[in-house]
Amino acid sequence: MPFGQIVGQERAIRFLQASLLKGTVSHAYLFTGPDGVGKRLTAFGLAKAVNCLERNGDFCGQCDSCRRIEQRTHPDLFLIEPEAEGARLKIEQVRELQAAVGYRPYLARRAVCIIDQAERMTEAAANSMLKTLEEPPAAMLIVMVTASLERILPTIRSRCQVVRFSPLPKDDLERLIGEQLSIPADKVRLLVHLSGGSLGRARRIDLASLQDKRERIFGLLDSLSSEACVEVLFSQAKKLADEEDVDSLQQFLDLWLYWYYDLWKYQLTGDERGLINTDRMKEIIRQSQILSSHQIEENIRLIEETSAALQRNVNKQLALETMMLRLGGGQREKDSQVPGEG
């Protein structure tokens, strides 16, 4: 799988390939960009490319060297990553690497060390790494991968060449999700929007729970538009706040947001293309006729505000209650033909 097959990171890859061809590969790189857009994949690609027996400035994926790197059995490939989900990178892991640094490569042209989730290095580990970066061994290439550049020590950042990775373009992501994940075609668009340009995040989204959330939203929308009493909304808000964590609530709100986006878009254009919840077309048409564009805008703003508030650690239940009350309020006012207060 040569560089050409890594999707959506043309700029980063063009840069790396140019360095490979010119023989100006740096001693250390820091790959940064959103989660799951191909940083780690590119890091492995670079490891293969500097050592590929067949190609220059690219990798074949077939030769002995590429094969061993792919299977992680290459003696000159050091992969430092958290040992468990959420674990930090410990100084012992860095020391293990440093013990190997003094040797000539076993069979590679250049040994490669990939540090995944480099922001998880403990301070001790990072400082120890600093020493290796200061006196880089001639036959070693260090590639650090991180989704949050600001959490990397500035002293480390300044000793590496930073390569930025961008979120994947929507079209590329739509194609990739269609190819790599076996999900129904009408859900692809939803995943693309939810993943924020990251294939990794799209992969982690659990479709079943997503569907579950959507059902809940549509249920809530029903209660909002009907004359459901405040207690029902409050009990729903409490349930949500108790059951879901912030990330999952965020996703819940995103889904809700996309609903209003669809209404808004449809109301403005009357065009079905580009909508996300295409499986609920009928409902979109009906609702877009009932709600005024001002109300839809207001609802979008409300959800966005709540979403931002949740990130700042507010009381989840309270935030949700307020949001629902105001969403419902707007709706009921419309139903009873009382002008909204905004």
Binding site: G102, Y103, Y106, L107
Partner: peptide, 21 residues
Amino acid sequence: FENQAVFKIGSIELFSRLLET
């Protein structure tokens, strides 16, 4: 060799990585 040395003692062969320091 480039990165390694070999010592053949009787029927046993010992391969040693070379230090690059």
